[in-house]
Amino acid sequence: MLFAQILVDGVLLGGLYGLMALGMALVWGVLNIVNLAHGAFIMLGGYVVYFLFVAGLDPFAALPIAMLALFALGYVIQRGLLNLIVRSALLNTLLFTFGLNVVLTYLAQLLFSADFRTINPSYAGANVTLAGVTVPLAWLAAFLVAVLLAGLLQLLLDRSRLGRAIRATAQNLDAARLYGVDPRQIYAVTFGIGAALAGTAGGLYGLVAQITPYIGATLTAKSFVIAIIGGLENPLLVILGGIVIGLAEALASLYLGPTYSDVISFGLLVLILVLRPARSLKLA
């Protein structure tokens, strides 16, 4: 039973991890930028939902607001700042988004203090028991939201005009210009969507864990690992990548002890990267 419980926990939490990684994978695939400030967006989304919750709003009703707020923030950051260096060497874009992460983290600390925050509505502790396995309802809801948003993103990319423009831009900037789309606009919208997804994930994260200004770095690292495992092409595969990591961490803390759970996702990553031939990892 313990084993089944661990499996269920791993899958549910993994879905949320997948949602965290979704925005990073999207931005990476389209803009070719590994956004080290991604975790900071997750953190900010968590605070937005937290403060709306404190003001009396249900966390799930607050999610769309966090989404919009983070979309706007992402759009502005891409248009006003990142756009200035978007064609720099990889190291410079990494460094820049790292700097962005530092600024957002310490702004958050100045504004919100370093206190631990949790979003705990009346139903936070509610759960159902199925065949001896306890399913926390908040986790289940977070998982469902993650899958739903991944499905919606997939639809957006496959079916809509905007989605086709985004994919054209990802393939080739010049081709995108020929299509008649302004790559700067597409970049900003894509970055905004990435931030919005991160913000949503942050709100859900606040339901299952504590929020501080400093959670960003680990969540960025986790998102990165998942983006590599899940690939940058297919949103639902990213969720699956999250589930893989969620399960691996759950099993590791069961068999090896909780100190190893962070090491395990890195270990898995190192193994995957080293064993897979280097060329197949190159982004198109």
């Binding site: 700042l81 260096i85 720099s88 820049f96 700097g99 530092v102 600024v103 310490y106 100045l110």
Partner: peptide, 20 residues
């Protein structure tokens, strides 16, 4: 120390933009 860290972040941003 928070202000120092914040400043550090800003220096990085400005350096990448103006002094790549």
């Amino acid at each position: 120390s928070t202000a120092a860290a914040l400043f550090f972040g800003l220096v990085i941003l400005l350096a990448v933009i103006f002094l790549p």
